[in-house]
Amino acid sequence: MKYLSIILFSTICFFNCTNKRNANSSDNNSEKDNWQLVWSDEFDTDGLPDTTKWNYDTRGNEYGWGNNEKQWYPVADPDNVYIRDGILTITAIKEPTFGKEYSSARLTTKGKGDWKYCKVEVRAKVPSGRGTWPAIWMLPTENNYGGWPKSGEIDIMEHVGFNPDTVFSTVHTGAFNHTIGTQVGKKIGLPTATTKFHVYTTEWNENEIKSYVDGEHYFTFTNNGEGFEAWPFDQQFHLILNLAIGGGLGGKKGIDDSKFPHHFQIDYVRVYQK
């Protein structure tokens, strides 16, 4: 049986792993824990992202998205977002764009990929350079409990260029958010975040939200039973991929303009449900 498993694994990799060579142990965990793949993008077709799966989010451009971010997010600009050789690349460029100093891209699955309770896996490599703020995160599809942060936010992975060897996962709710000093999250050291691809995973059910890097669990947020102010995570959420420049978090130590352009690379996105 051991040798049969090795042969089977090798055969699968030969056909399917050209750009997915670092198959992660969490894939095996998905199978073992009865997770079923319900949505994915392997980015196998060169060009712009698949519009049956992704939207371009631009509605906060004029206001810096509430975070004083310095970029403008265009729509379907191949200079800022493209797929090539099995990799989705979001590129931030230093260039005047509609009154902003930089351009980048922000993709969402809203209306095309919305889930209540799921497991999200994203294999990605983040850029290096002070002022960058890439993120893999989720927002509610409908703000049933009110505007941000009352209806919740799940940050699967965030990274800031001034702290290159660390990534973090966070949640935001009415009761727990940075505006009132109660934000809940955790960071983990990852010295190769900017040089190698890693698998960022969040598992979310009615009781807890758990985050992992390459299968290593490092953050848990638990439903304390005190209602939607503490736990608004009983609604459908959608996925967001973006590369911000500057802002309240990313720009804390300024922006190094000598490092542009910056590239946030995503190998795949996979969503599972039980």
Rank of each mutant, 00 (worst) to 15 (best):
H238A: 07
M157A: 01
D214T: 02
T182C: 12
N144S: 13
L243E: 06
L139A: 06
L139T: 05
I188D: 04
Y218W: 12
F237Y: 15
G146N: 10
T179E: 15
G161Y: 01
I154Q: 04
L243S: 05
G215W: 07
G185M: 10
W204G: 03
N177M: 09
W204L: 06
G247W: 03
F176W: 15
L249W: 15
T195V: 09
D257I: 04
F219W: 12
L239F: 13
G250A: 04
G146R: 10
N205S: 11
P149R: 06
P149N: 10
W204S: 04
D165M: 03
W148G: 02
A175C: 12
N223Y: 07
K253E: 15
F221G: 03
T170H: 08
T170G: 02
P140N: 04
V171E: 08
E229Q: 14
Y145P: 00
L190E: 00
K150G: 00
I245Y: 01
T166P: 00
G250W: 03
I154N: 07
T170R: 00
T170V: 08
G248Q: 13
N223G: 07
I136P: 06
F197N: 08
H159S: 10
E158D: 03
E226C: 05
T195D: 09
I156M: 10
S169N: 03
K187F: 09
T182I: 08
K210R: 14
L139C: 01
V199R: 12
G147D: 14
Y200T: 02
L239W: 11
N224Y: 06
H198V: 11
H159A: 06
G161A: 06
P191I: 10
T192Q: 13
S211P: 02
D214M: 09
K252F: 08
H159R: 09
S169A: 15
T220D: 13
F233W: 03
I180V: 14
T220M: 09
G227R: 04
L241Y: 00
T220C: 12
I245F: 01
F219Y: 15
Y218E: 07
T220L: 08
T182D: 08
G248R: 11
F228R: 14
H217Y: 10
T194C: 12
G246I: 06
F233Y: 13
I245G: 00
F228G: 02
G225K: 05
Y200P: 00
I136F: 11
A230K: 05
D234L: 05
T166G: 00
L241D: 00
E216Q: 14
V199I: 05
K196G: 09
F221R: 04
G146V: 09
G181C: 04
A135T: 09
N163V: 11
H178A: 14
Q183N: 11
M157G: 01
G189N: 14
L249K: 10
F197A: 08
D165Q: 13
S258Q: 09
